[in-house]
Simulated scan of single mutants.
Amino acid sequence: MATQTRPLSSQLLEDNEDDDRLCYPDITAPPTEHSGQIGRPNGYLTGESRIERAWAHWKKLGQPKLIVAPMVDNSELPFRMLCRKYGAQAAYTPMLHSRIFTENEKYRSQEFTTCKEDRPLFVQFCANDPDVLLDAARRVEPYCDYVDINLGCPQRIARRGRYGAFLMDNLPLIKSLVEKLADNLNVPVSCKIRMFPDLQDTINYAKMLEDAGCALLAVHGRTRDEKDGKKFRANWNVIKAVRNAVRIPVLANGNIRHMDDVRECLEETGAEGVLSAESLLENPALFSGYRTAEWVLGSEEINKEGKLDQADLLVEYLKFCEKHPVPWRMIRSHVHKMLGEWFRIHPNIRDDLNAQYKLTFEFLYDIVNRLRELGVKMPLFVMGSDDYSLSSHRSVV
């Protein structure tokens, strides 16, 4: 199907120079071949029909297994496109605030951009009002494959705003949010959750979401109090228990640092796919089999001739940003993540970056050139074993 580009909103922004961000109100206007649009809202389906439709939709998308997790200010369009280039098969947008999204045209134009290549796509919202959430969801459903409800954010801002993981204290409200979307959207509804301290509570929670109309469930294997991913290891056994308890597709989130983790997680949990977040920020080529030096120590089967490093990836990311402009704060964050090891060796260059109130692409490319002239290289390594095929992973209804 032919596609064309048109603005999400009808009015272009005129304040490009009032701060250090780029305004980009245009998004591609599918539906495309991946679209969840099927002509009738989900509300007319019940029981077995909803389960069958959930699986039919997942299979239509190609059953993606390698997925970019939602990251506030970090899973924006250019970064999603970079990860897709290096093996990601689907991606989430950053968490969008449903009320602000419905009220503020500038927020919509800057915080949500997409293009025809950016599929399959989950658009994630935080919310605590079913009607407001539906309003926001209807604005994006032509451009995505799932509208996702953030039920897992554990940060203080989520506590103050009464959304994310802090809705776990109000299960009836969560149920009403899911039902409102499931009964009124054409595109399927997905949810991303954290586990309760008690396993049975988590299983009951997952079943409630399924009964309310959730068509896909992403499970983060930590509680909302376990915020530090390096301190608390995700519990894959809980994800496995949820996968065995529900009949909709389940994705696993937590402990995905390289492709061996992907293989082990899929085998241990039985999940349909995995999400990676923090590890992708340092190594957007993770899903192509590349590892940072941190994860190759002690490994014997490594291609020592690493021909890719974080600087190469940063340059590619900046090229995507030039094509698909996003706020500069997002770009600045990715520069710090991808060049973090270099900055530890040459903190003066990091200080130069931090001193820049307004960034330019010329300045950022110059930073990369300065580091290269200093002879610094942070290579990414490819593991020697390539006998693992994701296509062998099971997927059952």
Rank of each mutant, 00 (worst) to 15 (best):
N74D: 14
S49A: 07
I67G: 00
Y86E: 04
S75F: 00
E52W: 08
S109A: 10
E52V: 15
R50G: 03
G62K: 06
N74M: 14
E33T: 15
C115V: 10
H97M: 11
R53T: 07
L96N: 00
K65P: 03
E117P: 08
E105G: 05
N74H: 12
R40T: 14
M95E: 02
T46Q: 14
A54N: 11
A90P: 04
F112D: 00
L45I: 08
H34V: 10
P31N: 08
L45N: 06
P78C: 06
S109D: 08
R50S: 07
P30T: 10
A91D: 06
T28I: 09
D73F: 13
N42T: 09
E76T: 14
P78M: 02
K60Q: 15
F101P: 00
H57F: 05
Q110G: 03
Q63W: 10
S98F: 07
N74G: 13
I27R: 04
E105M: 06
S98G: 08
C115D: 10
T93C: 04
P78F: 04
P31M: 10
L82I: 11
I27D: 01
R99D: 09
K85Y: 00
E111M: 13
C115F: 13
Q89L: 03
F79N: 01
T28R: 08
R84E: 10
S109L: 07
G62A: 06
D26N: 15
L45S: 05
A88H: 03
V72F: 06
E48F: 05
F112C: 00
K59H: 13
R53F: 15
Y44R: 15
V68N: 01
C115N: 07
P78Y: 02
H97L: 15
T46F: 09
F79G: 02
L77W: 02
S98M: 05
Q110H: 08
C83N: 03
E105L: 13
V68T: 05
K116N: 12
M71Y: 03
G47R: 11
I51R: 09
T32Q: 01
T93R: 03
